[in-house]
C-alpha cells in the first residue's frame, strides 16, 4: 500500500462538525398546510476531516448524506450543532465571511448533468468563478486552460455547452470549477454515482491525485462501499441521520463492528464470488429503512437488526470509542 501513514495520526483537523442536527417538516399536514412531524434528516452528527485526509461517508438513500454535505457548506442552516474550519467557528459567519469561506470549502455534486447552467459555455462557466472572486485578473484564460488540463480535459471544450459533454467530462468540469478558487477542503456528494465504472475510475484517480499533489482534504460521499473503501483513509457509516460506526478504511472492511455495517458489507455483490450473500442467506439484513419522524425509542437500527437485545429497545446507544480510531454506536460493543 502506498502513502505510508494514511490514517494521518497527528495531523490536525481541517473541518469539524459537532452534534449537528437538521430536521425538515414532514408527515401529515394540517388544514393550514403545516406538517406536525419533523423528519430527523441529520441527528447529532459528529465528523472530522483531517488536513489532506479523505473521509468517506456511506449510507443508504435518504439517510441524510446530502443534507450533511449542505450543512457543512452552509448551503442550508442547521437547527443545532457547531461547525469549524481550521479551528475557526464557521457556524455564525455572515454574508461576507461566507463568501470568504466559499474560497476555502467547495462542493462537487452527484448529478453532473444538472449542475451546470445549460446556457453558458464551459469557458464562461469557469471565467465567471474567477471574476466573482476577482482572481487572476488579466490571466483568466491561462488559469482556466490550466485548470482544464489539471482535471484532464482538453481546452477545446471551452467553447462547448455543458449539454455537449459526456457525464465523465461534466464531472471533471465540476471539479475544475470547484478547484478554481483553490479550496483546501472539497465535499464530493456522490460524484461517481451517475457514472460508468470506466469513468468512475477516472474520477477516483483524480481525487486521489488532487489530494497527493495539492494536499486537498475531501469528504467523499457515496453509497457504494467499494468506492468509499478504495478512496478513503477513514470511513463513517450513516444510518437514518446518525453516524453508527467510523474507523480506518482498511479496518472497517476487515472487521466491521456494527451489525448494520456488517450487513452492508455482506450485501455488496462480489465479482470474486467469495462472500456470496446468496449462498449465505442468513447474514442478510431484512427490510428497509423507514423515515424517522420522531426520535426513536431505543436504537434506530433495532427494527432490522439481526442481533437486537432487550436494551436496544429502551436506550439509543451513542457513538463511543472502542479502540484507537474506532467508534461505534451499538450496545454490543459498549462495556
Amino acid at each position: 500500500m502506498t502513502g505510508g501513514n494514511r490514517e494521518g495520526a497527528g495531523r490536525p483537523a481541517i473541518f469539524e462538525a459537532r452534534l449537528l442536527e437538521k430536521t425538515f417538516p414532514a408527515g401529515p399536514r394540517d388544514l393550514l398546510g403545516r406538517s406536525a412531524g419533523r423528519l430527523r434528516a441529520v441527528d447529532w452528527v459528529d465528523i472530522s476531516v483531517l488536513e489532506a485526509g479523505i473521509l468517506g461517508l456511506v449510507g443508504e438513500s435518504g439517510c441524510g448524506k446530502s443534507t450533511l454535505a449542505r450543512l457543512a457548506l452552509r448551503l442550508i442552516e442547521r437547527d443545532a450543532g457547531s461547525l469549524s474550519f481550521r479551528g475557526e467557528d464557521i457556524g455564525a459567519l455572515d454574508g461576507r465571511g461566507l463568501s470568504r469561506l466559499r474560497r476555502s470549502m467547495q462542493i462537487v455534486f452527484q448529478n453532473p448533468f444538472a449542475s451546470f447552467n445549460p446556457r453558458f459555455r464551459v469557458g464562461t462557466v469557469l471565467r465567471e468563478v474567477l471574476r466573482v472572486h476577482r482572481l487572476a485578473p488579466g490571466a483568466e484564460r491561462e488559469r482556466t486552460e490550466g485548470m482544464l488540463a489539471r482535471v484532464g480535459l482538453s481546452k477545446e471544450l471551452l467553447e462547448r455547452y455543458p449539454g455537449e459533454l459526456s457525464g465523465g467530462q461534466l464531472q471533471r468540469l465540476g471539479f475544475a470549477r470547484a478547484l478554481l478558487v483553490e479550496p483546501a477542503f472539497v465535499v464530493c456528494d456522490e460524484p461517481v454515482s451517475a457514472l460508468d465504472v470506466s469513468v468512475q475510475a477516472q474520477i477516483l484517480n483524480l481525487v486521489a491525485e488532487l489530494r497527493e499533489s495539492l494536499g486537498i482534504a475531501f469528504l467523499f460521499i457515496a453509497h457504494d462501499l467499494r468506492v468509499v473503501e478504495h478512496i478513503s483513509d477513514r470511513v463513517a457509516v450513516m444510518y437514518l441521520g446518525r453516524i453508527v460506526e467510523s474507523a480506518g478504511s482498511g479496518e472497517l472492511y476487515l472487521s466491521p463492528l456494527h451489525p448494520y455495517t456488517r450487513g452492508l458489507i455482506r450485501a455488496i455483490p462480489s465479482p470474486a464470488g467469495g462472500s456470496s450473500f446468496l449462498r449465505d442467506r442468513a447474514s442478510l439484513i431484512r427490510g428497509e429503512a423507514s423515515r424517522l419522524l420522531e426520535a426513536p425509542r431505543g436504537c434506530r437500527f433495532r427494527p432490522r437488526c439481526p442481533v437486537a437485545m432487550a436494551r436496544c429497545g429502551q436506550e439509543e446507544p451513542g457513538l463511543t470509542g472502542v479502540g484507537p480510531g474506532r467508534e461505534v454506536a451499538c450496545w454490543l460493543h459498549h462495556s
Binding site: 463568501s99 466559499r102 462542493i107 449542475s115 466573482v132 465540476g174 470549477r177 478558487v181
Partner: peptide, 26 residues
Amino acid sequence: RLAYVEAAQALGYSSSRIVFVHIAPN
C-alpha cells in the same frame, strides 16, 4: 431547486447574480 443554482451558491455568487444572470435567462 436545480443543482446548478446550488452550485452557484456554493461558489459564493451573490443572490442578485444568481437570480438575474442565471435564472432569469432560463
